[in-house]
Amino acid sequence: MRLLSRALRLLMPAFAVFVALLMGGTLVPRHADFRPTPDGVPIFVVSNGMHTDVVLPLREPRTGQDWLQRLGQPALTARFGQYEYVAFGWGNERFYLESYGGKFPKAGTVLRALLPGPTLMHVDFYRHAPRAGARVVPLRISVAQYQRLTGYVEQSFAPDSVGRWTLRNEAGYSPEDFFFYARGRYHALRTCNDWTNQALGRSGIRAALKAPLAASVLYQARRGAEKKTVR
């Protein structure tokens, strides 16, 4: 016990420094010069307090992007053809699946999520655009930025042997959301919010250097949204 106690005392300062550096990444922006595009593609960064998603137009005529066609699920096309937006999120498979019914995952699941584990894409259909608010940041981005963003989202899905995206479950938390198999491993340094943050940053949109929490993602996205638009 003495050895364990001593080891913990030695590790705590290092852990505190690690957390400080991680959280400090929230305040350091990538693409600080980002400006919204007035007639650009409307997107939204949305949070439920813990997770973040990017909400995109279901169809975008300037790029020809049609998410229902890309998902390749005839049943979803029939059901959601009149909807206007679709949200994408990425996260730990067990954490997602144990959250059904509004439940919080077991402690063991939370701890295991610190280590590399399998992931899912969460796809949620919106009948209309979400309203701006404390947990919803609207942005207007250029066509080129949107194309990079859609490319990032597409690359996050895990295709089957013939290149199709595969449903993990026939239903999600509601009748309007679903889970697909995803690429990548979830762990303490690669979280659901880090995925959203990377989606923005790699597309040329203002994002945090590191975003372990939903608030980190929203903070930098909102700072970007508040900048004067590009003319």
Score class of each variant (00 low, 15 high):
168 R>L: 12
155 Q>T: 15
169 N>H: 04
164 R>F: 13
145 Q>A: 06
145 Q>T: 03
185 R>K: 09
156 S>Y: 03
174 S>F: 06
145 Q>I: 02
144 A>Y: 00
147 Q>K: 10
157 F>P: 08
170 E>S: 11
184 G>I: 10
168 R>Q: 12
186 Y>R: 00
143 V>T: 09
158 A>G: 07
146 Y>Q: 07
189 L>V: 06
153 V>C: 05
163 G>V: 05
147 Q>E: 15
189 L>C: 11
177 D>M: 14
168 R>C: 11
188 A>H: 02
178 F>P: 10
163 G>H: 08
173 Y>D: 10
189 L>M: 13
176 E>F: 15
172 G>D: 04
151 G>W: 12
170 E>G: 14
156 S>D: 04
167 L>G: 04
159 P>F: 04
159 P>Y: 03
162 V>C: 06
156 S>K: 00
164 R>I: 10
154 E>N: 14
182 A>P: 08
159 P>D: 03
151 G>K: 07
170 E>A: 08
152 Y>M: 02
171 A>L: 10
147 Q>A: 05
178 F>Q: 02
151 G>R: 11
170 E>C: 02
178 F>Y: 15
146 Y>T: 04
185 R>V: 06
184 G>S: 06
180 F>V: 01
176 E>C: 05
161 S>G: 09
161 S>D: 14
161 S>V: 13
143 V>S: 00
185 R>E: 14
166 T>W: 09
167 L>R: 12
160 D>Y: 03
158 A>F: 12
155 Q>S: 15
166 T>K: 09
166 T>Q: 12
167 L>K: 09
158 A>C: 10
147 Q>V: 09
155 Q>A: 15
144 A>W: 00
174 S>V: 04
143 V>R: 00
181 Y>M: 06
154 E>C: 12
153 V>K: 07
151 G>I: 13
146 Y>P: 04
149 L>G: 00
173 Y>V: 08
142 S>N: 08
179 F>Y: 13
165 W>Y: 15
148 R>M: 01
145 Q>D: 03
176 E>N: 13
155 Q>M: 13
143 V>I: 06
158 A>E: 12
166 T>I: 07
169 N>Q: 09
184 G>Y: 10
175 P>E: 11
157 F>A: 12
169 N>C: 03
186 Y>E: 01
